[in-house]
Design a protein around this nucleic acid. Structure first.
Lengths: 299, 299
DNA sequence: GTAAACGATTAGAATAATTCAGTCGCGTAA
DNA sequence: TTACGCGACTGAATTATTCTAATCGTTTAC
């Protein structure tokens, strides 16, 4: 290309010779013939006006200039190769990468176990799960502080993309002390029963109560608590009912005497979406992780 | 070269397009035609599977991926170019460089004025003069803490190179009160005179006294002091003689009534040598500075 | 609407990189 | 000491890549 400017591709040849200490082995590593490597070395020698490697027996020993040059340029070459790889391809098996994921509340419980199981085969991959306030989600994604966020459908700007990750619905969890459901749970039975309302707020209706009030009915709240797990333990020991997302319900009732029942009336779905900063969406590592999350969500 | 490995020379093309925001201007900057740059960009686009630059009117606007890639790889590219330049060529006019020079005693006075005058035309060059114990000279040169040392002939290992920088001899400095030298200074007159001995030690003979004792003679020391400058001020005000290196003598007597006379007997020369760490001697910046020092010493 | 500026594409020329074939130097074993 | 194997170097031939000239399509300015 330009006169007097070193062909930067020769740096890779230099580095390989340096590492292998032999032109023949370097040629093998580069998938070239030995004379090709010899010619490349000749070009480097001409450029630096130094033999760079001196043959001693069957080893090519680096000259002081070669050694010093190798130490000086290596960090830059490593950094460039890393940058090129970041935007060209991502190999999760060999490349270290930390993914920052915004997960709220029960989504940690429903996603992280399967996700970490999937990452067993990728020991270089690390995941950091953070809870970010909803109002900060987009700025954190744009700034790269978060790679992805997982949440219900939220209004976002055109700078943030999202797609459906998993469908979820509300179901009813009942313990063995709750009777009268041999033919399924009717709306009358549901409304006559006493309920546990799960909310991090100390007052106000739950999401399901909004829908019931649209039907002109309301249920009887006997207990208000903050965590679905605690609510299920209560339902198991009493005849109170818990209305909650199905995915989490099925996780919790395992090896308990609790049952999952369909809600006796239609409720809008609780769909979980994956969010990311649109301009970054072509980055190979992020694309790979996105696919992985879809696989995990399909469990 | 290798499949799937980016031609690193394309990075320079990328960077130029990014900076110029136009293929035509980038081509001009790279001394290529516009289609050559277009081809290179096509290769980059294929590699990253991204347009990288989108034409908006007559500007090529970088895509988000291109922007992020530019920011990521720029430090590495800068570092590599710097490393390559360090070992290929050195341009003292435009490249910043600090040279560490080991100078003892009067050598600072005799070298630094002319050296700094020569460096007037190289504003990017900085010089640090350090006094290093003689026993530490070689380790400091090897470690790169010193680029060069200037001293009389010393015994050094094969890892340290040296070459003659300047020849010097001992001369006699006399003030206007000293008589009887119309036909030159004879050995008898020299021995009959009173002398100033300059030494940082509080006792013991000077170097010239070793040579005189080999002739079976000795001179009369009337004063012992530590600096040649002070000794010369004494000679100017009295009829005492000072025996000292010629280069410094000629510097000091300027615009005084002092005279420089040949020593009336042969003494071995006081040659000043330049020392450096042999393995580094091919580095272009050090080569350049070495040449400069020779020019300065030839003054 | 026209001319100029600019990027993309095609075809061919020029240049660079790689391979092939052969020679030379070094180290080791017989 | 000789023969052999290994590996680097060199030059010619071949292949691949890059660059240029020309042209086409798009955009901008007047």
């Amino acid at each position: 290309m330009a006169m007097n400017r070193l062909d930067l591709n020769l740096l890779h040849v230099f580095e390989t010779i340096y590492r292998e200490g032999s032109l023949t082995r370097a040629a093998r590593a580069l998938h070239l013939t030995q004379p090709a490597v010899s010619h490349s070395l000749a070009r480097l020698r001409a450029h630096f006006d130094d033999p760079l490697f001196i043959r001693q027996g069957n080893e090519m020993v680096a000259t002081p200039l070669a050694r010093r040059f190798a130490d000086t340029m290596r960090p830059g070459l490593t950094q460039i190769q890393s940058a090129v790889n970041q935007f060209h391809s991502f190999d999760p098996v060999s490349q270290h990468k930390v993914f920052a994921l915004g997960l709220r509340d029960i989504l940690e419980s429903t996603f992280l176990p399967h996700l970490m199981q999937s990452l067993d085969q990728y020991p270089e991959i690390e995941v950091v799960s953070q809870r970010i306030p909803r109002r900060d989600m987009e700025t954190h994604l744009a700034a790269g502080k978060l790679d992805f966020a997982v949440d219900v459908l939220l209004p976002v700007s055109s700078q943030t993309s999202h797609e459906l990750l998993r469908r979820d619905t509300l179901v009813v969890v009942a313990g063995p002390k709750f009777d009268g459901i041999e033919n399924g749970l009717s709306l009358e039975t549901y409304l006559a029963a006493r309920h546990v309302l799960v909310s991090s707020r100390t007052e106000g209706p739950g999401i399901e109560d909004f829908e019931l009030s649209r039907l002109g009915v309301h249920r009887r709240i006997a207990l208000r608590c903050q965590h679905y797990y605690a609510a299920c333990r209560v339902a198991e020991a009493t005849d109170l009912l818990v209305t909650m997302p199905e995915t989490y319900a099925r996780m919790i009732i395992q090896q308990t005497s609790l049952r999952v029942l369909p809600l006796p009336t239609n409720m809008p779905p609780l769909n979980v979406h994956l969010y990311w900063h649109t301009p970054y969406e072509k980055e190979p590592a992020l694309k790979w992780f996105r696919e992985l999350l879809h696989q995990v969500a399909a469990h």
